[in-house]
Amino acid sequence: MVDCGVTCAKYSVFLFNLLFALTGIAILTVGAVIFSAFNHYENFLGEDLWSAPVILMIIGGIVFIIAFLGCCGAIKESSCMVLTFSLLLIVIILFEIGIGTFGYVRQDDLNNALDKGFNQTLNNYQANQKEWDLVQTELKCCGVNSPDDFTPKVLNGSAFPRSCCLTLKIDEPCTKKDATQKGCKTSLLNYLSSQSTILAGVAVAVGLIQIVGLGYACCLYRAFRKNYEAV
Rank of each mutant, 00 (worst) to 15 (best):
I25R: 08
E42D: 13
I25A: 12
L49N: 08
Q136C: 07
V144T: 12
K10E: 02
W50V: 15
Q210P: 10
T23R: 03
L192C: 11
L15E: 03
S187D: 08
A74W: 05
A205L: 09
D3K: 10
Y125T: 08
N227C: 07
E96C: 11
C71H: 04
T186M: 12
S79W: 09
A205Y: 05
D108T: 15
G183C: 01
T137E: 05
L89H: 06
Y221Q: 07
T84M: 10
V30R: 05
V82L: 06
L122S: 01
T23V: 14
L89K: 05
I34Y: 10
A37W: 09
N128K: 06
L110T: 14
G183A: 05
S86H: 04
I58T: 12
K130Y: 12
Q120S: 13
F38A: 08
C218K: 00
G46K: 01
A217D: 04
K226N: 04
S86L: 04
I170F: 15
Q126H: 14
L220H: 00
S158E: 11
E42I: 14
L22T: 14
L88G: 07
A74D: 00
F35D: 14
V54E: 04
F35L: 12
V154S: 00
S196C: 09
W50M: 15
K153W: 06
C8W: 04
H40G: 15
L155T: 03
D48G: 13
A203N: 00
G46P: 08
G70M: 04
C141G: 07
E138N: 14
A217G: 08
